[in-house]
Design a protein around this nucleic acid. Structure first.
Length: 602
RNA sequence: GGGCACAUAGCUCAGCUCGGAUAGAGCGUCGGACUUCUAAUCCGACGGUCGUGGGUUCGAAUCCCACUGUGCCCGCCA
C-alpha cells in the first residue's frame, strides 16, 4: 500500500510542479517526523524558493494548491506545514492495508521478480568448529538470503568450500600422520569437527616445533597433496575430500542450530577439475592488462584504482585461490542473474580485485553484490581456529539457551500471570529466545561496525533485543487464540489456527480507524513491504530489525489503548481482531527475514 | 608508508546511500502503572560541541577536504 501511495504522491506532485512550469527532477519526497500527521512530505519548496522568488512557505502553499488529488486511490489530501508540503492518505489506504495484511500470512512478500540470485555466505575453511568471530557471516548471510526471497527473487544459498589450499593439505597430512594417541586433548564436544580439529592443531604445532629434518619430510607430504590436486589425481581428491567432508559435516550441524541451511556446498576443486580455471587463466593472458613479471603471470589493475598487481598464475604455472574464484564467479553468472557474497572485511581487497577482473573478462559486474562485515573480536585479541583461541558458536548458543531458560522460569515465579506453560513450552521458549537473541543482536547492527565480543552484551535479553519484538508476536497470538477460544462472535471475521483472518465481510470503514494508536499501527503495517524492498535493494537486513522495533512501539501503544476481545461493540471487536492478525503477520514475517523465531507464547 | 572502513548520550546502537521539521531508541539513574486481551510491557524525568578543524549550501550528523583515534588489508597464502 505504501509503495502505491508513494508512487501516487510522486505522480501528483510531479504533475503539480509541471503545471506551474517548475522543474520536476527532484521531488524531495521523504517521511515526515513521527509526531507529524502526514504519511509523506516534500521539501521541494526550499529548492524552488530561489527560482520562484518567494519564501518557501509561500511556494509550498502554491504547490499544495496545484496538486490535484482526484483520481488517486490512496492520496486523499494535501496541505502544508510551513515550508513542507504534506500528503495524507485516505481511509481506503488503511482499509486496503488491513484487508491485505490480515488475510495474508505471507504479507510483505513482494511480487515475483523473475530473477534468480545466489547468496554465498559463511564459506569458512573447513578446519574446525565455527567460532563467534565468524558467526556474523551465517547470521547476516542467512538474513540477506531471506530478504531477497521476500523481495521476490528466486534464491539459492551457497557455501563455497576452500578445499584446494595449503590449509587443507596440512590438515589431510596431519590426519593421516597422527593417531589418537598422539593427541593430548579430548574433543571439546562430541562432533566431527571438534574431533578432527585436534589433528589440524597438532599438525600446525608440529610444523612450528619439530626438528628441521622432520619438518622437511612433512612439507614433502603436504606438497605432494597440493601437487596431486593440481594434477587432477583422483586418489588425492578422495584423501582430502574425506577430511573436508567430515569436518564440514560437523560444521553444518552447528550452523543448522542458527538455523542456517544451504542449497549447495560448492567446492573450489570443482573449478580445477572441470578445467574452467585453466580456461580463465588462458583468457587473462590475452588481455592488455596481463604482464609476465618475475616469472609469474600478473594483471595490472590500476585502471580500477588497484595499485597492487594480481598474480593469477604462479611461476610453476599453477593457479591461485583468486584464479579459481574467477572461474567460480563466471559459473555463478552463467547460472544466476545476480550473485551476492557476504564476506569479512579482510577479503575486501580481494573482492575488489575479483570485481575488476570479472569486468576485464567481459562480465556485467552490476550483477555482483557484496555485504562486507567487520570481524567479531575478543577483548584480548583475535579468534583463531589454528591456535585454538576463541569462543565457539556452539558454546554461545548453549549459554544463550540456558540463560533464556532461567529467565523464563524466574519470570513465571515472579509475576502475576495465568501461565499454563508446560515443560515443553519452557524449553521451546528458551530456544526461541536464546538463539533469537544471539541472532538479533548481530543482525540488527550495521555489519561494517566492529564488534568486541562480551558475554554480558551478547546475552543481554533486556536491551533492544529479540524478546522485546518476539513478545509483540506472542501478544498478537494470545489475543487471536483468546478471541477464538472464547467463542467471540465476530461477524465475517474468523481466526483459524494459523491466525489467518477472513475479512471478506468486514466493514472496514468501521470504528477501528477512530483511535490514533490503531491508525498508527496500520500505517506501520502498510510500510512493511516498502521496508522489505528498500532493505533488499541496499542489501541491508539490519533495517528490518530497526523496523521491528518501531513496529513494536506502535503495537504496544495500540495494545495499551485498544482492548480487542473486550471491545465495546462487535464491529469494533471484529475490526481490531483483523488488525491484530495483520500485525501478527507483519511481525512474523519481519522476524522470519531476520531468521528469528516468532513464538506463539512466551 | 599506501588503501578501505568506522567515530552520534555514561554504555550499546539507529539515523548518513538520496542534505530538510526539535538528532531518535534501549540499558543505566530517578519517579510512576499489574482486580485489565501476557508487566520479557508501558508512562514520565534526567542525559548530546553528532571525533576535531575547514569547505559547499537557504539549510550539514548526512556531501567534500584535512587532521586525530580505532579496526582491517597491502603474499607466487586461503
Amino acid at each position: 500500500m505504501f509503495r502505491q501511495f508513494r508512487s501516487e504522491v510522486a505522480d501528483a506532485l510531479g504533475d503539480a510542479l509541471a503545471s506551474l512550469d517548475l522543474p520536476t527532477d527532484d521531488l524531495g519526497i521523504e517521511r515526515p517526523p513521527d509526531d507529524m500527521d502526514a504519511t509523506l512530505a516534500s521539501s521541494v519548496a526550499f529548492r524552488l524558493a530561489g527560482e520562484v522568488g518567494a519564501a518557501p512557505p509561500s511556494v509550498a502553499a502554491d504547490v499544495a494548491e496545484a496538486v490535484d488529488v482526484a483520481g488517486y486511490d490512496y492520496l486523499a489530501a494535501v496541505d502544508t506545514a510551513g515550508p513542507y508540503v504534506n500528503f495524507h492518505a485516505g481511509e481506503r489506504y488503511l482499509a486496503d492495508t488491513l484487508d491485505a495484511a490480515a488475510a495474508d500470512p505471507d504479507y510483505g512478500t513482494l511480487p515475483d521478480r523473475d530473477a534468480s540470485v545466489v547468496v554465498e555466505h559463511t564459506s569458512a575453511n573447513p578446519t574446525g568448529p565455527v567460532h563467534v568471530g565468524r558467526a556474523r557471516n551465517p547470521i547476516v548471510g542467512d538474513a540477506v538470503a531471506n530478504l531477497m526471497e521476500y523481495a521476490g527473487y528466486d534464491v539459492d544459498r551457497h557455501y563455497y568450500v576452500n578445499d584446494a589450499g595449503r590449509q587443507m593439505a596440512v590438515f589431510t597430512w596431519a590426519y593421516e600422520r597422527f593417531d589418537e594417541s598422539d593427541l593430548d586433548t579430548d574433543p571439546a564436544r562430541d562432533r566431527a569437527e571438534y574431533d578432527l580439529v585436534r589433528y589440524y592443531r597438532k599438525g600446525n604445532a608440529f610444523l612450528e616445533e619439530a626438528d628441521p629434518a622432520e619438518v622437511d619430510a612433512a612439507e614433502e607430504g603436504i606438497s605432494a597433496i597440493l601437487q596431486g590436486l593440481e594434477a587432477g589425481d583422483e586418489e588425492t581428491y578422495e584423501r582430502v575430500g574425506e577430511v573436508v567432508d567430515t569436518v564440514l559435516g560437523g560444521m553444518k550441524e552447528c550452523l543448522a542450530r542458527l538455523p542456517a541451511e544451504f542449497d549447495e556446498f560448492v567446492k573450489e576443486t570443482r573449478f580445477m577439475r572441470d578445467a574452467s580455471t585453466d580456461e580463465v587463466a588462458a583468457r587473462l593472458k590475452e588481455t592488455d592488462q596481463a604482464v609476465y613479471e618475475e616469472d609469474a603471470w600478473q594483471l595490472e589493475l590500476d585502471e580500477w584504482g588497484i595499485e597492487k598487481n594480481l598474480v593469477f598464475l604462479r611461476s610453476d604455472d599453477t593457479s591461485l585461490y583468486t584464479t579459481r574464484d574467477l572461474a567460480h564467479h563466471e559459473w555463478k553468472f552463467a547460472n544466476y542473474d545476480r550473485a551476492v557474497t557476504v564476506l569479512g572485511e579482510d577479503h575486501k581487497l580481494q573482492a575488489d580485485q575479483l570485481g575488476a577482473t570479472l569486468e576485464l573478462l567481459g562480465n556485467d559486474t552490476d550483477r555482483l553484490g557484496h555485504v562486507i562485515y567487520s570481524y567479531v573480536n575478543l577483548p584480548d585479541g583475535k579468534m583463531s581456529t589454528r591456535r585454538g583461541t576463541g569462543v565457539m558458536l556452539d558454546d554461545l548458543l548453549d549459554e544463550a539457551i540456558d540463560r533464556a531458560r532461567e529467565a523464563v522460569e524466574s519470570r513465571m515465579d515472579d509475576r502475576i500471570r495465568d501461565d499454563d506453560l508446560t515443560a515443553e513450552d519452557v524449553e521451546r521458549i528458551a530456544h526461541q529466545v536464546g538463539i533469537g537473541a544471539v541472532r538479533y543482536d548481530i543482525v540488527s547492527k550495521q555489519p561494517a561496525k566492529a564488534i568486541t565480543f562480551e558475554w554480558e552484551d551478547a546475552l543481554d535479553f533486556e536491551a533492544q533485543s529479540a524478546p522485546f519484538v518476539q513478545y509483540v508476536h506472542a501478544r498478537c497470538a494470545g489475543i487471536l487464540s483468546e478471541a477464538a477460544a472464547a467463542g467471540v462472535e465476530v461477524p465475517g471475521v474468523t481466526a483459524d489456527a494459523d491466525g489467518v483472518v477472513d475479512v471478506d465481510a468486514l466493514d472496514v470503514d468501521g470504528a477501528v480507524f477512530e483511535t490514533e494508536a490503531a491508525r498508527e499501527l496500520l500505517r506501520e503495517v502498510a510500510r512493511f513491504p516498502a521496508v522489505i524492498e528498500t532493505a533488499a535493494d541496499d542489501l541491508e537486513p539490519h533495517t528490518i530489525a530497526t523496523f521491528t522495533r518501531e513496529f513494536a512501539d506502535a503495537y504496544n501503544a495500540f495494545y495499551r489503548e485498544c482492548p480487542v476481545v473486550t471491545a465495546d461493540d462487535e464491529e469494533l471487536r471484529a475490526a481490531r481482531v483483523a488488525l491484530v492478525a495483520a500485525a501478527k503477520h507483519t511481525m512474523a514475517n519481519a522476524l522470519d527475514v531476520l531468521g528469528v523465531e516468532a513464538p506463539e507464547s512466551m
